[in-house]
């Protein structure tokens, strides 16, 4: 059983091809400064555990759309690879036509990754930054495990199953840093995405409502 943080249906093209349902788990080894799902560290209040079968029953309602569009289930979080056993069992009982994807930091033990390799259609990896100092400052931990896991994973799956994401993180990395990160993985012939964080001037927002 696992504690599930959210189940977001009918996502179109944002978490993999086709129509997808994003299932997010609690807990993550990273403590990213700008984490959009900071709630993932707070599972103390959550009482509801799901079995893989219960989750399957819930998401089955979109089975036809998944099959028509090449979509399926994307597991995220938090860090979904802290729930490897759950995902393994889910993949075992889910329709084989569904694409099962993982959105992950890949910063976990290898034995959490290896069992899922045959069954995951796509690995969407949030690299953050290949520079360990920058990575550590932003997330609180080293990227050594992530890099080691990436090296192993690349040898075991075809490149079209890999999607690497490189954020421009205000205050943490520069465009030059992102270029260096891309350079480090240039030998991996897979999808690579560079994207910007949307940054809001919170001081200006506070002034608008009279808080500053």
């Amino acid at each position: 059983m696992s504690k599930i943080m959210g189940i977001s249906r009918l996502r179109t093209g944002t978490d993999g091809k086709g129509i997808t349902t994003l299932v997010t788990f609690y807990n993550c080894p990273l403590k990213c400064k700008y984490c959009i799902n900071n709630k993932c560290h707070d599972d103390e209040w959550v009482l509801t555990d799901y079995t893989p079968k219960e989750l399957l029953n819930l998401v089955m309602v979109d089975d036809s759309y998944f099959k028509m569009s090449g979509g399926g289930i994307t597991f995220g979080g938090g860090e979904p690879l802290l729930q490897t056993e759950f995902i393994e069992e889910f993949v075992r009982i889910a329709p084989t036509e569904w694409n099962i994807r993982i959105e992950t930091s890949l910063n976990v033990k290898w034995n959490a990754i290896e069992p899922l390799i045959p069954n995951i259609s796509q690995w969407i990896i949030d690299i953050k930054d290949m520079n360990d100092d920058i990575y550590k400052e932003y997330t609180g931990i080293s990227n050594a495990s992530m890099k080691s896991n990436l090296k192993k994973l690349v040898k075991l799956i075809s490149p079209e199953r890999l999607h690497l994401r490189f954020p421009n993180i205000p205050g943490y990395n520069s465009s030059e840093d992102v270029e260096k990160s891309l350079d480090e993985v240039k030998h991996i012939d897979c999808k690579k995405e560079v994207f910007d964080y949307i940054f809001v001037d919170t001081d200006a927002e506070c002034r608008k409502i009279g808080w500053l």
Partner: peptide, 17 residues
């Protein structure tokens, strides 16, 4: 077949707001 394009959307899952 139902075609849905995959998008590289900026500010994906790490939007500050």
């Amino acid at each position: 077949q139902l075609e849905i394009e995959e998008r590289f959307v900026s500010g994906h899952d790490n939007e500050l707001q």
